[in-house]
Design a protein around this nucleic acid. Structure first.
Length: 539
RNA sequence: GCUCCUAUAGUGUAGUCCGGUUAAGCAUUUUGGCUUCUCAAGCCAAAGACUCGGGUUCGAAUCCCGAUGGGAGCACCA
């Protein structure tokens, strides 16, 4: 029924008549047995049973409205006030993908209008993180490059009566906002405002005066209740020093910058949604071009805090080592943990542009990462909770083992003398008289079980038996294996969030580059952190 | 408290704007099977969802109203 109406819209006016006919036909068809129905279909309507064609998945982000190929400009404006994390990655990737999708331009703009919070260290960390992610920019700038422009536009607003200088106390401003009341300062004439603006350059101290936008104190949207456009900050700016003391607020700076930079589409996370109206109002007041503003949800991983407010105390209490602790969702931590930038990009693209909050479990990212990491991770043997296994009459003194089961990554030679380590978990399952296979080496018949096992080499290629990994005792290299887990279970700090294991691996480990991804056979993917330490990535 | 945003399988999403051509697609997870000298990867299969209540309509995941859950804003932070 739906199908008929969908394909033949001309019938829609005669729904009543049709529905009668259809129910008759359906009734008569239902009289037939299923074999008869099938036969009828095969003979007359074979296309009905043809497998449904797959719907083409949309590649990438949804199309933009009012986007012209080659003319789209997007931007990523981080504040250099902390280390970049997965949330930054989302904003940067979405905006950069759109620029790419339309053959447009992409701007990195360091949003540095609060000297008290910003530091060169963070600025550098953000650059490093973005570079690691493989994000490229057409233009790199800082908001503070345009201070003179902000002043110019600010004066324009004051001179047109659309902004005024307010000398009320901070608490009074806040109170008036809540009560939707104007203050005396807003009544002042343009002349007086100009004088006061002059005094802000020199005389007024931090906190004495601010420039406010004449919005609407009665507005439901609290952001519109005469927000601050400029304030005095006497601190030292990390690049400009003490050159300026009047700094634009975020809303004012973003509005002007996006408009002047030619940004056509600006995507920000959802907490800025209420500012959309303000930014449009500021640009209208200045008769400036308005960019399209879009919003997306914040991204967090379950049990992994993203905000400095939570992370900082953890560092101070020594519960995590630093911002690159592998349990954290900072880019640096993700990198150390063995997550590939391509996986982050794919993962973020898979989340799309939704505004519903995303609290993803980490294994969603892991699934993407595994696909990138598997094809070129060297397979190495590693044993944890090592137990000794002595094998008699071993017929060889060395063996070559391929570094990857399907891809050609070469082979490595391992010297063997009959004295091995195997994993404690495996040794528990081994009983006297059993046969096991040491991977790549051969079958062993167990002659003694327990803390120290013994066995004999057996000829033959029987492979339907337990296959385990091993490490020669003589060349075994001990490393620390770090297994990061979620930091929080709900609200509660997970005291066992970092498991450390002393394990043995092959000496070949020493020849790998730092940062290389390894798959320890039957254990999982790990990243070489140093000669003596590896970090577990995921299964 | 006020204002705004949001709600599809265990999880993450597509579809929602322009109601019917899809009794809801994909990925992940889980479970079986195949393959394999790894509990990896690969291949095949199965399981599993439109928050609730009203309304409009021949027909609603899709439009309207309400409830509920989740998130955000109410800074001289961004």
């Amino acid at each position: 029924m739906g199908k008929i109406l969908g394909t033949k819209p001309e019938f829609r006016t005669k729904v009543k008549e049709i529905s009668g006919e259809i129910s008759e036909i359906v009734a008569s068809v239902n009289q037939l047995s299923s074999e008869e129905q099938k036969k009828e279909i095969d003979e007359n309507f074979p296309e009905v049973l043809a497998p449904k064609e797959k719907i083409a998945e949309r590649e990438g982000l949804p199309e933009l409205k009012n986007a012209i190929q080659g003319k789209v400009i997007t931007r990523f404006p981080p504040e250099p006030n902390g280390y970049p994390h997965i949330g930054h990655a989302k904003a940067a990737i979405i905006n950069s993908e759109y620029a790419k999708m339309y053959g447009g331009k992409f701007i990195l703009r360091m949003d540095d209008t609060n000297p008290e919070a910003e530091r060169m260290e963070y600025h550098a960390a953000i650059k490093v993180g973005l570079e690691w992610l493989g994000i490229e920019f057409d233009i790199v700038k800082s908001t503070s490059d345009d201070m003179e422009l902000f002043y110019e536009k600010g004066m324009e607003l004051i001179n047109s009566g659309k902004a005024y200088v307010c000398t009320c106390k901070r608490e009074d401003i806040s109170k008036n906002r809540r009560e939707r009341k104007n203050c005396k300062c807003s009544m002042a004439d343009i002349d007086k405002n100009n004088k006061r603006w002059g005094k802000m350059q020199e005389k007024f101290k931090q906190g004495d005066a601010v420039v406010r936008f004449r919005g609407d104190m009665k507005a439901d949207n609290a952001v519109m209740r005469d927000p601050v456009l400029f304030r005095i900050i006497e601190g030292k700016h990390y690049t400009l020093g003490e050159k300026y003391r009047i700094w634009p607020s975020y809303d004012f700076a973003v509005a002007i910058e996006d408009s002047m930079d030619g940004v056509t589409h600006a995507f920000r996370s959802k907490e800025f949604e209420l500012r959309e109206e303000l930014i449009d109002a500021i640009l209208d007041a200045l008769s400036m071009r308005k960019p399209y503003q879009g919003f997306f949800s914040r991204l967090e991983f379950k049990g992994m805090p993203i905000s400095k407010r939570v992370i900082k105390p953890l560092i101070e209490e020594g519960k995590v080592s630093w911002y690159d602790d592998p349990r954290l969702p900072t880019l640096e931590a993700l990198r150390r943990r063995g997550i590939k930038p391509e996986a982050i990009r794919k993962f973020i693209m898979s989340l799309g542009l939704t505004k519903a909050n995303t609290l993803a479990p980490f294994d969603a990212l892991e699934a993407f990462n595994r696909k990138f990491v598997d094809p070129d991770s060297i397979r190495l043997f590693m044993v944890s909770n090592a137990k000794k296994l002595t094998v008699k009459n071993l017929p060889m003194s060395s063996i070559e083992i391929p570094n990857h089961p399907v891809n050609d990554m070469g082979k490595r030679k391992i010297e063997v003398d009959g004295n091995f380590y195997i994993s404690g978990e495996d040794s528990q399952n081994i009983k006297e008289g059993m046969r096991i296979r040491l991977l790549g080496l051969g079958n062993i018949s167990i002659t003694k079980e327990g803390e120290e096992l013994e066995g004999e080499f057996v000829e033959g290629d029987q492979t339907k038996i337990a296959k385990i990994q091993w490490v020669p005792q003589k060349t075994a290299h001990q490393i620390k294996m770090i297994i990061p887990k979620v930091l929080f279970n709900g609200e509660e700090f997970n005291e066992n969030s970092l498991e450390e294991l002393d394990v043995y691996t092959e000496s070949h480990y020493l020849q790998l580059k730092e940062g290389e991804e390894i798959q320890f056979v039957r254990f999982g993917y790990c990243r070489k952190d140093s000669q003596n330490q590896a970090i577990f990535t995921h299964k």
